[in-house]
């Protein structure tokens, strides 16, 4: 079976019924998609198949023969964040980070088909993505910021945004 993952072509002789999630993680070392519930209930394994958001845990390899697969790694990396990644960073949209790659990939698919979603549109589109840390508020804030065209100059993942601001707020001075 042939498939393209983040622009790289692969020819695989794996079990056609093997979930794409395990092919990506264990055979191709693409570990952005997380193995959460592995029954389609949590959203952490979400990837794009020809631009459509899919749960890779419920997608047999045979179903993506000849397809173009994009994971979080294909959207951007630590040295070159895409707008959603930068927004999650800027708005504190991640805590433990386990849901984050699925959230961002699903949000990317949403913005591709609806560039100006309402907050309710985002909540509906990402309803199947469970986050247990953030309470979703800052995730929604981050996606809304991208939707309204906010730009992010920070592309370096090392920076900790908001620290100067928080120091100013609390008066804890350096």
């Amino acid at each position: 079976m042939k498939l393209t993952v983040n622009g790289r072509a692969h020819d695989l002789a794996s079990d056609p019924l093997r979930p794409l999630l395990h092919v990506l993680r264990d055979e191709l070392d693409v570990t952005g998609p997380k193995a959460g519930c592995q029954q389609g209930s949590c959203g952490t394994c979400t990837i794009l198949v020809d631009g459509e958001a899919r749960r890779s845990c419920l997608t047999p390899l045979a179903l993506v023969d000849g397809a173009e697969v994009t994971t979080i790694e294909g959207l951007g990396d630590a040295t070159r964040l895409n707008a959603l990644q930068a927004a999650f960073h800027q708005y504190y949209g991640a805590q433990c980070g386990f849901c984050t790659s699925g959230m961002i990939v699903a949000a990317h698919a949403l913005l591709e088909r609806n560039p100006a979603p309402t907050r309710h549109d985002i909540q509906t589109a990402l309803a199947g993505h469970i986050c247990r840390c953030t309470g979703y508020v800052k995730i929604l804030d981050a996606i809304e910021a991208v939707a309204r065209g906010e730009t992010f100059t920070e592309t370096n993942g090392d920076r900790q945004p908001g620290v100067e601001e928080s120091v100013a707020k609390t008066g804890v001075s350096g």
């Binding site: 247990r132 309470g135 508020v137 928080s166």
Partner: peptide, 19 residues
């Protein structure tokens, strides 16, 4: 007591609210 990083405190409150 003192919110050393208010944005992170807010993140804890919002996350706790949903839990």
């Amino acid at each position: 007591g003192r919110a050393i990083n208010p944005t992170l405190v807010e993140g804890q409150i919002e996350g706790g609210a949903m839990m």
